[in-house]
């Protein structure tokens, strides 16, 4: 239902992260329709939208800002068991959707495979997820495989 990956940008000046739709320029500007600049709603700095290859590169170097010790699902190896911690910021709605499958904080989950889609086992439920969803799921490695 929500899929916010391409429309999220970060202001290069102040570092504020926002949805692109929030950044429309002052209404009534005659050039508004053709304007390719994005305005940061926090510091009002105007900047051009980063081009595709840059965004692609940024994806490689971008480090997810999450608490130490937590990983996202894509960083686990197939066959590993970990504890579900929560969702990345912005994916809370998706978290509520996953909760109905029994994926609540503290629940152990096993990553069964990564290709062609991620498959996790939560209790006796097997769930298939695609990469975009898996990236927003945060987990913590556990020493002892859990029961239940």
């Amino acid at each position: 239902m929500m899929n916010g990956k391409p429309s999220r940008v970060q202001c290069p000046l102040c570092g504020f992260e926002f949805e692109k739709t929030d950044s429309v320029c002052t209404h009534g500007c005659p050039l508004g329709r053709f304007c390719k600049l994005i305005k940061c709603p926090s510091c009002h700095y105007e900047f051009p939208e980063p081009a595709r290859p840059f965004r692609w590169l940024a994806k490689w170097f971008h480090q997810p800002r999450v608490r130490a010790g937590t990983l996202d699902l894509t960083q686990l190896e197939a066959g590993e068991t970990a504890e579900f911690v929560g969702m990345t910021p912005g994916a809370e709605a998706r978290g509520r959707m996953l909760a109905v499958y029994g994926l609540t904080a503290g629940t152990p989950l096993t990553l069964q495979q990564k290709l062609p889609a991620f498959v996790i086992r939560v209790g006796e439920t097997e769930l298939a997820l695609e990469g975009d969803v898996a990236r927003t799921i945060l987990v913590r490695r556990r020493a002892v495989p859990a029961t239940g």
């Binding site: 239902m1 929500m2 899929n3 959707m97 499958y101 439920t125 097997e126 298939a128 695609e130 969803v133």
Partner: peptide
């Protein structure tokens, strides 16, 4: 419109 997330329960 948007496509929904792919989250699918796999029956045994």
């Amino acid at each position: 419109g948007e496509a929904s997330d792919f989250v699918l329960e796999l029956p045994p």
